[in-house]
Write a protein that binds this DNA or RNA. Structure first.
Lengths: 319, 319
DNA sequence: TCAAAAGTGTTATCCTTACACCCATGT
DNA sequence: ACATGGGTGTAAGGATAACACTTTTGA
């Protein structure tokens, strides 16, 4: 009898908390972190999305708002430690196909569900945070990357382009490609693990600069999500899905910066918002941090139905 | 024993022929057209992409070049007539999940494989061709669309936005959303078919203006592909994947226009190409159609590895 | 010589970028 | 008063959109 297919659904649930991009993780004690995931039941589930919403709520006591499909991963050998996804054709080795989803929510409240926590997204990709200039983690891993590339005719240009080597500019969208390069180079702990090998010495030496690993292919899915989200920021007003009803323009800018991982030019960011008529002042003020109180704004959701609406421009701050 | 999952892979293989965007279709005599598709074998296939390349070649005697994953569809009830996808868990009703792929090729050569043919892409979506102004097919289906929308608070703005009603501008990227609206409105023949109902009279009356239906969810996958491709044109130089090594700038422009379905401004299109240093004159001339011979150009593929490269701007021609 | 398609010049306008500066509050 | 963050004005440069015009071939 032939090997069976199990479809696993994984959710990247993202939010903003204290000016940082965070994701919902599940971490059974002692184990690496993972994303909320569950099996797709071909009998009972009418659509992927409904199944996803149901098990995320069950697992984390959290209701999803905005949801979109990311990618379906089916490579043999990268699904290793997800052996049993609950009931269904377990016992015998099943072929696991994983469908990744991205969910956004304005409320990063603690759910009190066991083993569930909001984790700083960039902890898994420390080289992705350029808000305060070139990240230290990148400097730390550069030697290992360059050693892997050597003078190789395709590796070296690829490294240059993806990791801003030799004066190449940083492109914040290519999160997945960067992670895949690290995996190929054997610099992601998951690479050795998936082959059943012990961790490489180079990986152990670099430690946290390589980012925290996750179970199964979850870090890959997380990288896919960040790539998608950073790209989408620019052509859809998705950032408002992680903002509360009322927010200050600075909070909005900090949210965009946290997701995109780059510092933005304050005034040009505001001018772009204004021109697009995306936000509206509420007259009310925010009485908060030290300094002049900021006006509260709201997203003009009504423009979504009324005209083709693009995202935000990212006016970079020169460094 | 529980119902099993079958994963079907479908390929949208696109090319340009005689200035038209075409796709590879499989059409057993008398039946509606379909995309090349085949089952994913969890036993033998290492990745989706390898499996896809293998069966497309087997089925159409055609080798794929550029390939990317589109989307994974798993809705119950939209997979109706694909009952048996070859060997595997057939006999008993299986749950079919379909993973769509997009492939691009510069050679739309006839393969001589049985029942395989290149079909004009826009035949399935006649309202998508704005190269010669507002398409007649759109004018034809507008009354039915407006009747469906009525004064409904969400339907009407959605219709306006997607189908350029009441002065709203046309957005060529939203192919999938338009198809889904037609499906919801019962104006795609597939909608009644999937519910096991006879064709609606309104659908029969409109005939070809609603576009040719396809088997299973293939028209949905085709719409997904066109959306993706139209979007991608603008931020990746994908158009060159469907061009021969040497081409004239007019041929390039016609290719872009065929895919995007909109007319472009000749000189501004060329200026954009020049500024991006994307193409290079070959000195050779093309001795072809009536008129002054055109210079042949090639895509400077080397820029791909060297710097972050975006796609083409689409300088619209006012109408 | 005329139709057909290739290819070029130029300007107004808008958007982006990059300056530098003023405002309102809490301590 | 001063530190802290909020909020504004304006000018240079580049990209886009919109004009109309010249060139080279085949029939």
């Amino acid at each position: 009898m032939s090997r069976q297919i199990v479809i696993g659904l994984s959710a990247v649930v993202a939010a903003i908390r204290d000016g940082q991009a965070v994701v919902l993780t599940v971490r059974p004690q002692g184990q690496p972190a993972g994303l909320p995931f569950g099996p797709f039941d071909p009998e009972a589930d009418r659509t992927f999305e409904l199944a996803l919403r149901a098990f995320v709520t069950a697992q984390t006591r959290f209701e999803l708002g905005y949801v979109e499909q990311l990618y379906t991963f089916g490579d043999k050998g990268r699904d290793a430690p997800l052996a049993n996804l609950g009931p269904g054709p377990a016992g015998r080795a099943s072929r696991i196909v994983s469908v990744g989803y991205l969910g956004l929510t304005p409320k990063a409240v603690d759910t009190a569900a066991p083993d569930t926590a909001w984790a700083d997204w960039l902890r898994f990709f420390p080289w992705e945070d350029w808000r305060d200039g070139r990240p230290a983690a990148l400097t730390a891993i550069e030697p290992a990357l360059r050693q892997w590339a050597g003078a190789h005719p395709t590796r070296l240009p690829r490294l240059r382009l993806l990791f801003a080597q030799d004066g190449a500019p940083w492109n914040e969208e290519r999160v997945l490609e960067r992670y895949e390069l690290l995996y190929e180079a054997g610099l992601a702990p998951e690479a050795a693990r998936d082959r059943g090998e012990p961790p490489a010495p180079a990986v152990e030496a670099l430690g946290p600069a390589l980012g925290e690993p996750m179970i199964s292919d979850h870090r890959r899915i997380l990288a896919t999500a960040l790539s998608r989200l950073r790209g989408k920021l620019k052509y859809r007003p998705v950032i408002f899905e992680v903002m509360p009803e009322a927010f200050t323009l600075s909070a909005l800018q900090r949210a965009v910066e946290a997701v995109a991982g780059v510092p933005l030019h304050k005034q040009n960011f505001r001018r772009a918002l204004e021109r697009a008529e995306m936000v509206e002042g509420l007259g009310r003020l925010d009485s908060e941090t030290g300094g002049r109180p900021a006006e509260l704004f709201r997203f003009r959701r009504e423009i979504l139905g009324a005209r083709p609406v693009s995202g935000l421009s990212l006016p970079l701050l020169r460094d």
